[in-house]
Simulated scan of single mutants.
Amino acid sequence: MANYRLNLNQQPNGDYEVHESGCTYYPTVNYNDLGSYNSCGPAVSEAKRKYPSKQINGCVHCSKPCHTS
């Protein structure tokens, strides 16, 4: 299992990205800890549940199966 965090700094395209621990872009400031999961899918779902008004996406580098834009 890996720990996932939501970066609360919005990307230029409007996304808020979910990152897996060990990712180069894993946030260390201004983030929400989403917990530990076996894959990015449940982590992205949790981020969307916590922040329904935000455009949530998986990181293209560490959560590629959940990256949609």
Rank of each mutant, 00 (worst) to 15 (best):
V29H: 13
P42A: 05
C59I: 11
Y25S: 10
G41Y: 04
P12N: 12
T68F: 14
L6C: 11
V18N: 00
N57G: 06
L8N: 03
Y16F: 09
I56E: 02
Y4T: 03
R49C: 00
E46Q: 04
C59R: 10
K54W: 02
N32F: 07
A47H: 12
T28Y: 08
P12Y: 07
N9A: 06
N30Y: 14
V18P: 00
Y31H: 07
N9I: 08
Y31L: 08
E17Y: 05
Y31M: 09
H19D: 15
E20W: 01
E17R: 13
C59D: 07
C40E: 07
G41W: 03
G14L: 09
N9F: 06
C66E: 01
R49M: 01
N3Y: 07
A47I: 13
K50H: 03
S45V: 03
S36R: 15
P27F: 00
N38K: 09
S21L: 11
Y25F: 10
H19R: 15
L8I: 04
Y26E: 12
G35L: 12
G35I: 10
T24M: 10
P65S: 04
G22V: 14
S63G: 06
S53T: 12
E17K: 07
Y37F: 15
P12T: 15
N13P: 05
L34D: 06
Q55G: 01
Q55P: 01
S53R: 08
K50D: 05
T68D: 00
N38Q: 10
S53M: 06
V29Q: 14
K50P: 00
G58H: 03
G35S: 13
M1C: 11
L6K: 05
P65I: 02
Y51Q: 09
D33S: 15
N57Y: 09
L8S: 01
Y37R: 08
S39I: 08
P27L: 05
N13V: 07
S39C: 10
Q10M: 15
R49D: 00
